[in-house]
């Protein structure tokens, strides 16, 4: 065994030991009165406020979405920016943006005819599955404030449908449907939608991302429903960026930045 492994084991055991010692003071599993779930008697903790009041505030039944997109909307916006920045970092590292123009060989749409029967099964199955996956992704995005889901989850599912196309035939087939320029545009548009909602609120003389003032624009019954609809818009923006960047990460990593051939 190498010397560094011994040191690593010592460090890990010390860290784990300290943590396990600290764990003995933690509340037990599933305790509804633990400090994370409940405040001291007589006052209300943040998470209790979210459960009891957020439906009145926002008319969004999915409390996770209302906390994510409204109460912590600023956080979520910069989370989307983190995704965007990660995508840009991958472009910068693997160097596919601004490089020499790559002549893309226009091949036949399907290479099933070359006698490789396994590709027929895989290709047909994926061709049948992809529309279903995409419809489900749109459902997860659009229904995200009524059921489990939202922009991040739906965006990842939508990106997965493009990745399935790339896996079942080749990367070019997926890039014909969502080209490099288009997914970069999509990523930018997503951020702009999110930030645009915030700026729009500022223009209407309220705080950044305070959706309640959008009521006259969205023609809703009250400021609560305006919040609900704005959350849907914001989630769509998140979904755009997540779809684009997840597909971009796959496309760049699988082709080593050349965006050709792929796996």
């Amino acid at each position: 065994m190498r010397l560094s492994s011994i040191f690593a084991i010592i460090a890990v055991v010390i860290t784990g030991g300290i943590l396990l010692y600290g764990v003995s003071d933690f509340p037990s599993f599933g305790d509804p009165k633990s400090p994370a779930n409940a405040a001291v008697p007589g006052s209300e903790s943040v998470s209790q406020y979210f459960i009891t009041k957020s439906y009145k505030d926002t008319k969004v039944p999915n409390l996770v979405t209302s906390v994510l997109a409204d109460y912590r909307g600023y956080d979520t916006m910069f989370e989307t920016v983190v995704i965007f920045a990660a995508g840009m970092a991958i472009f910068a590292i693997l160097g596919s943006v601004g490089g020499e123009s790559q002549p893309r060989v226009q091949e036949e749409e399907s290479s099933f005819v070359d006698g490789d029967h396994s590709r027929i099964i895989v290709g047909t199955t994926c061709r049948l599955l992809v529309p279903v996956i995409q419809v489900f992704a749109l459902y997860v995005i659009g229904h995200g404030h009524y059921s489990p889901g939202g922009g991040f989850q739906g965006g990842v599912i939508l990106a997965a449908s493009f990745i399935i196309i790339a896996l079942s035939s080749d990367l070019d087939a997926a890039l014909r449907r969502l080209s490099e320029v288009n997914y970069l545009r999509l990523a930018c548009v997503g951020i702009l939608i999110y930030a645009g909602f915030g700026v729009l609120c500022q223009v209407l003389e309220s705080n950044f991302l305070d959706y309640g003032v959008l009521q006259p624009i969205l023609l809703t019954d009250g400021p609560e429903m305006a919040r609900s609809h704005s959350m849907l818009g914001v989630e769509i923006g998140v979904a755009f960026t997540v779809t684009a960047i997840m597909f971009a990460i796959y496309a760049n990593l699988s082709s080593r930045g050349t965006l050709r051939d792929g796996l």
Binding site: P32, A36, F50, I51, Y55, L63
Partner: peptide
């Protein structure tokens, strides 16, 4: 308003 103890903590 729902009872906080009947729902998992969303935070």
């Amino acid at each position: 308003s729902p009872d906080p103890d009947t729902m998992a903590n969303p935070l």
